[in-house]
């Protein structure tokens, strides 16, 4: 039997808004995935290290403080440096005009406010189908 999809939900930076991250974590878990939540106040280095240790298929980055422009690309840099094959998505308060930059550095999707959780579940199932 194929192993379950493993997802790390991560809160980079000092941002304490964890409602969205927790709701998404619960939804992915209810959809049959294995979810690891980093908790708050993680540096990009800590997130990538956890992702490697836990051998996850996907990382979901959540930020509502506006620090995404600095912290998300840093995570992607470390993902590349470590040659990780991992699907990275983002969520939170992220202005539309920042989305192209985030996508260019390798973030597969940006889920803004109002995204139905089912869309996030489907996205992960579809993109990670080949592996499982």
């Amino acid at each position: 039997m194929a192993r379950k999809i493993r997802v790390l939900i991560a809160k980079p930076g000092l941002d304490g808004h964890d409602r969205g991250a927790k709701v998404v974590a619960r939804a992915l878990r209810d959809a049959g995935m294995e979810v690891i939540y980093t908790g708050l106040h993680q540096s990009p280095e800590m997130i990538v290290q956890t992702a490697m240790q836990e051998d996850v298929d996907a990382i979901g980055l959540s930020s509502l403080s506006g620090a995404h422009d600095v912290l998300f690309p840093r995570v992607m840099e470390l993902v590349r440096k470590n040659k990780m094959k991992v699907l990275v998505t983002a969520g939170g308060i992220i202005p539309e005009e920042d989305v192209p930059t985030l996508k260019k550095c390798g973030i597969a999707a940006v889920f803004g406010p109002g995204t139905p959780i089912d869309d996030i579940v489907k996205f992960h199932k579809e993109r990670l189908k080949a592996k499982h």
Binding site: G13, L14, D15, S65, G66, A67, D69, V70, L71, R74
Partner: peptide, 10 residues
């Protein structure tokens, strides 16, 4: 170093 990326944002 903890302040990286967060200056003046929220």
């Amino acid at each position: 170093p903890h302040s990286e990326g967060e200056y003046g944002k929220c």
